[in-house]
Simulated scan of single mutants.
Amino acid sequence: MAKVNIKELLDNGVHFGHLTRKWDPNMAPYIYTERNGVHIIDLYKTAAKIEETAEALQKIANSGRKILFVATKKQAKDIVAEKAKNINMPFITERWPGGMLTNFITIRKAVKKMSSIDRMKLDGSFDALSKREKLQINRQREKLEKNLGSITDMTRLPGALFIVDVKKEHIAVAEAQKLNIPIFAMVDTNSDPRPIDFVIPANDDASKSIDKVLSFITDAIAEGLAERKAGKEKAQPEAAEAPKAEAKTTEEAK
């Protein structure tokens, strides 16, 4: 796992917090100074927290659990969607569906509804419907795809959440807390870091800052996935060799 470069964080504006009058006092340990009425985040602490977070997420990815990325704010959603897709992880970037975690069974039913519509189109039964019925079903499918499209492969609760802007995604935070799902997040100076298990103090408003922090995180997750794949490939030949060795021992005994 690559070490975090402080200059890269600085160049991408990760250190810019919010106006001092909008701060959350619980973020005080992560604030370096104040400049022109704006809080400046301590990037040495940010770098240490990124490395700590990356290591933990790498282990979760290696274990085979999914990491759900959540970011519905305009400047973050496209970045998060792209980076999550690259590592084959689920993401929510449109709107957090209430009960996404606490009522996961209902969410799974909605995903199955999408699958049943897709099967109708494949087996030809969709063609037998009236024009009006087709229109209604297509609209329903589009709505489901927009809200749930990226989580169709998530058959169980995620092993962790990674959130950009915990203030905006407070419902996701509350649901994860209720179910004891670890929360990893970029936390700006206007937010309360206390509900978050792994805090990355960082500017969560600028796209360059979000992109830079997520690059470190997703690279670590990709490493965890690669290690898992390599471990599986190594285990397969060993498993195949075991019966051969057993057969040879039996033959020698005769």
Rank of each mutant, 00 (worst) to 15 (best):
S115F: 07
R139K: 08
M120Q: 07
Q140F: 14
K113N: 01
I137H: 07
L122A: 06
K113R: 05
M114W: 04
D118H: 08
M120S: 00
D123G: 01
S125E: 05
K134L: 02
G124L: 03
D118W: 01
F126G: 05
S125W: 00
F126E: 01
I137E: 11
M114Y: 02
L135D: 15
L129T: 09
L135Q: 15
N138F: 02
K134T: 08
G124K: 05
M114L: 00
K113H: 01
D127C: 04
L122Y: 12
K131N: 07
S115I: 06
D123P: 06
Q136K: 11
E133Y: 08
K109M: 10
N138S: 14
S125M: 06
R139C: 13
I137G: 08
S115D: 11
R119S: 05
I117A: 03
N138A: 11
A110S: 14
D127E: 08
D118S: 10
I117Y: 08
S115Q: 14
L122F: 04
R132P: 01
S130A: 03
D118C: 08
M120C: 03
A110M: 12
M114E: 00
K121Y: 10
E133F: 08
M120A: 05
D127W: 03
A128E: 13
K131V: 13
S116A: 15
S115A: 13
E133R: 12
Q140T: 09
V111G: 08
D127G: 01
S116L: 07
G124D: 09
K112S: 13
D118E: 15
K109I: 02
R139Q: 15
S115K: 10
N138L: 06
S125N: 11
K113L: 08
I137M: 13
K113G: 01
I137K: 09
I137W: 05
I117F: 06
L135Y: 15
D123R: 04
L135G: 14
R132K: 09
K121D: 09
M114S: 00
L135M: 15
S115G: 10
S130T: 04
R132N: 11
M114H: 01
M120R: 00
K109F: 06
M114V: 00
R141T: 12
L129A: 01
Q140I: 11
S116R: 04
V111S: 08
E133V: 10
Q136Y: 03
A128Q: 14
K134Y: 02
L129N: 05
L122D: 06
K121N: 04
K112W: 10
K131C: 11
R119W: 08
F126M: 10
R119T: 07
Q136A: 03
E133L: 05
I137Y: 06
L122K: 13
Q140P: 00
D118L: 13
S125K: 07
K109W: 00
A128S: 14
G124A: 09
K113M: 05
K112L: 11
K134A: 03
E133I: 03
D118Y: 08
K109Y: 04
R132I: 12
S115L: 03
I137T: 01
S125L: 05
R132H: 12
S115W: 10
F126V: 10
G124F: 01
R141D: 11
K131R: 12
A110P: 01
L122Q: 02
D118P: 04
G124I: 12
V111L: 03
R132A: 06
S115E: 14
I137S: 02
K134Q: 10
D118K: 09
L135T: 15
I117K: 05
S116M: 10
